[in-house]
Design a protein around this nucleic acid. Structure first.
Lengths: 143, 143, 143, 143
DNA sequence: GTGGTCTAGACCACA
DNA sequence: GTGGTCTAGACCACT
């Protein structure tokens, strides 16, 4: 494992949320969900009051057990990132604004560090890594 | 990821192998070891015949149970990447040469894809990501 | 072998899998399990999708630690012979069909060679070996 | 392992003793040696007073550590099968004759049973097994 | 002192 | 209740 790592990608039921599960990476599904929702909230892509997909809908789309989705939503509710309103759904909470930028910055640094380490392990220097990044990014960002 | 991710870093006992464990990422320790050894073999940093740290030595350095190291070495042996000689140690196998470059390229693509996805989730565009990369990389590459 | 070799025999929990452990032969338990599951898959007795006994059930039946069963299942998964779905069990993988017959033939040849060598060491010629085989086999084949 | 099982075969230094090591079977080398010498003694191929290869000679031929050979010889001496005469070598002991036949018979039965079980696991019936035996045996026994 | 096998037992992810 | 990860620790095979 860690080899084949099939990447499944689905559009969420909500307007803006998109989930990508990396099975076989060893990272539990519920943590991937938490991370992606946290990131969406931190980046401002999901704003306070935005509605998340229902557990049932997400469960069907991602082919994941409903309990797993539920566990992620619960955890995020405990952390104050989501709010559940029985009967109407699950929403992004009003966020303490100061948290945002530091947190986002920290997460970016972590990701950058992980990526550089991996490139280093593979013997790829920064210039080559940047080149690979730009090549891979062009088709998606079209800028 | 995103929990608190303390990053511990140690120098391996061998001449060339360096291990970095990211506890709290949810990725099992033995998988992190597998990935790093695979990468070292793919990059050519570790060559056929090179000796890996002994299980016990690594276990002490990384503060991890010997069985965990053993599990990683074992899986790599089953995959044909390592060879063990009881009583003398564990070594990089003679690799099928064709595998080398394709494998490395594949691993680079996977890492790039993961990184871009993560940046995208955080609302960071490619230019900003490249900037962050260059900034973080300066201390290592500026020479 | 030849130490005292108590032979314990148990019926597996699944419909088709039967395990026989030869303690005291010096062959590690987990390897015996691997061999028997491989043979069952090679012979077609276990087919793609068939469920194996749960780790805990086998562990109780064979009076062996669950980790030992797990180790066998795990190695077979790495080799692509088994597939595990956490929460539901362990199954025979969809096999590459080409492998089937060659593999079975190879395993038969190996077993025949080992047996002949052993008989030769004991000074038993082929005719006597065949006779012993037929005598021992009667209770099973005479119908 | 248990897959590739390379079978190395060597002629022993003595007149009659022939050793075959099956590395990768999981059976310790010293036990394979013990078994083969026991079998040779039981079958009458080696008789009381016959000389065994020196530890050093065997060690070179089988590419095995001298301590491993030594361990096998020691064990056999403890069991009364070998006798060491310092300065002149290691020899087959005078055997208690009654032991021979029962023991040989028991070992044959064990080997037959193991073989039949393995054939059964592979879905090979007795007739097919006998056929495979005869085919494999013809070139060697020429009878 | 090297790796290998096995046990016992705790805690986690998932259905 | 399913398998997965990890620890602690015993004993063995082999150099």
């Amino acid at each position: 494992m860690g080899e084949g790592s099939p990447l499944f990608q689905f559009e969420g039921a909500g307007a803006r949320m998109k989930f990508t599960l990396d099975t076989g990476s060893g990272v539990p599904v519920y943590r991937q969900l938490i991370q992606q929702i946290e990131n969406a909230a931190a980046s401002g892509r999901m704003k306070a009051g935005d509605k998340l997909p229902t557990i049932r809908a997400l469960s069907v789309e991602l082919k994941v057990n409903p309990n797993t989705i539920s566990k992620a939503y619960n955890e995020l509710e405990i952390r104050g990132i989501l709010t559940t309103q029985v009967g109407s759904g699950t929403f992004i909470s009003a966020q303490r604004p100061e948290v945002h930028d530091d947190w986002k910055e920290k997460k970016i640094q972590e990701a950058v560090f992980r990526f550089l380490r991996e490139m280093d392990e593979l013997g790829v220097d920064t210039d080559a890594a940047v080149l690979a990044l730009r090549n891979a990014a062009v088709p998606n960002t079209s800028q």
